[in-house]
Amino acid sequence: MNVLICDDSAFARKQLARALPAGWPVTLHQATNGLEGVEQVLMGHGDLLFLDLTMPELDGYGVLETLKREGIRSKVIVVSGDIQPEAYQKVMSLGAIDFIKKPASGEQIVALLERHGLWRTDEARTDVAPTMALTVEARDVYQELANVAMGQAADLLARLLDAFVVLPIPNVNVLEVSELHMALNAAAKQETLSAVCQGFIGAGIAGEALLLFHDSSFADLARLMKFEGELDRRAELELLMDTANVLIGAFLRGYANQLDTPFSQGHPVVLGQHRPIEALIQTNQSRWRRTLAIEINYRVDGYAVQCDLLLLFTEDSIATMNNKIMHML
């Protein structure tokens, strides 16, 4: 089943995603306003829709009116801070199956889904482990480790391109697979991407480095690398692999050195060229589960060159890394 969370607040979308049952076998999508929500439903991404009422572009009432007018039979659960009796009556008359107040707890969501026959306790995957805790102190350490490794990778890229690389604050989070998909969607926005993935392993730590390269970046990247010749698909692949080798290799070396744990790297794998992020997620969703994710956005100042590097550490790696960073806390 395709489940769509439609809310203009990124915090509210993440909070609701966390409240969904662990191990629920669904594909999760998101929309940031009512118009995007209607588009996602028309794309088949809204078998079940969690819908906010107060949104820009098109509010929740407008979404319900549109679905009703078009004869679209998505099941809609309104999740809103507006709990006036009139609001409840209006959304139910427009076809919503239920109404729940923000913020919704996991227990409330489970009870609601069971009431409507959308989820049963025995559907939960038995391989889902308890939620991993990431303390504030541990997040700060992982963020600083990533900050140092990110800087080393950016230095190599800057020297290669003879340009200034703008660096963000690394984003560190423990993510469920549904939240990871949401993060990937947010990183890519509406662009098509080319993506490279490279596995790594060392002394109880394993994971994958994922480089998402925005397709609009190829022209300027070719110019910076003084590439001569036709910029065809093969040439773009060469540029993509060169960039991935620099950023992934340098980051992993810098990160491993700080943990005093050398990593062995697998061969880089091209996940796709010029594809929407949805297609990449759909093709590779079985490989991405609960993970410690470090997200970094690299941008070249003055040029349309942008890529997102995600380091996805396996759940089993967290305990090992936590032990290694204890002296840093």
Rank of each mutant, 00 (worst) to 15 (best):
L210W: 13
W24S: 05
T314H: 02
I294Q: 15
E315T: 08
K102R: 09
V166Q: 10
R159L: 13
A222P: 10
L184D: 04
G266K: 03
V26P: 00
A138G: 09
L280N: 03
R139Q: 15
K102W: 07
M241D: 03
R223Q: 12
A133K: 13
P268G: 14
D127T: 10
N2R: 15
Q15R: 02
T283F: 02
R115L: 00
D47C: 01
P268C: 15
V148Q: 02
T283E: 13
P103S: 09
V246A: 01
H29E: 05
K75Q: 13
F227H: 14
Q30W: 06
G60H: 03
S216Q: 11
F213A: 05
Q15E: 12
L224D: 06
L49P: 04
K324W: 14
L247D: 12
V196C: 11
A111I: 10
E39W: 11
L221Y: 01
K189N: 12
N322K: 09
A244Q: 06
G44K: 06
I277A: 14
T320L: 01
G60W: 02
E123R: 13
I205A: 05
H267R: 13
Q89P: 00
L252H: 01
A244S: 14
R139M: 03
T320I: 11
L211H: 06
K90Y: 04
E86T: 07
L210D: 02
V91K: 14
L167Q: 02
S9E: 01
L231Q: 06
L292W: 03
Q265F: 12
Y88K: 06
V41D: 09
F200H: 05
S80V: 03
H267F: 05
R120M: 13
V196H: 14
D242H: 10
D47T: 00
A222T: 00
A104K: 00
R223F: 06
E278F: 05
A304S: 13
M92I: 15
A319D: 08
L212S: 02
A96T: 14
A186S: 14
I5R: 07
T27M: 10
T314P: 04
I83K: 07
S80P: 12
E39H: 07
T27N: 14
G204F: 00
V91T: 01
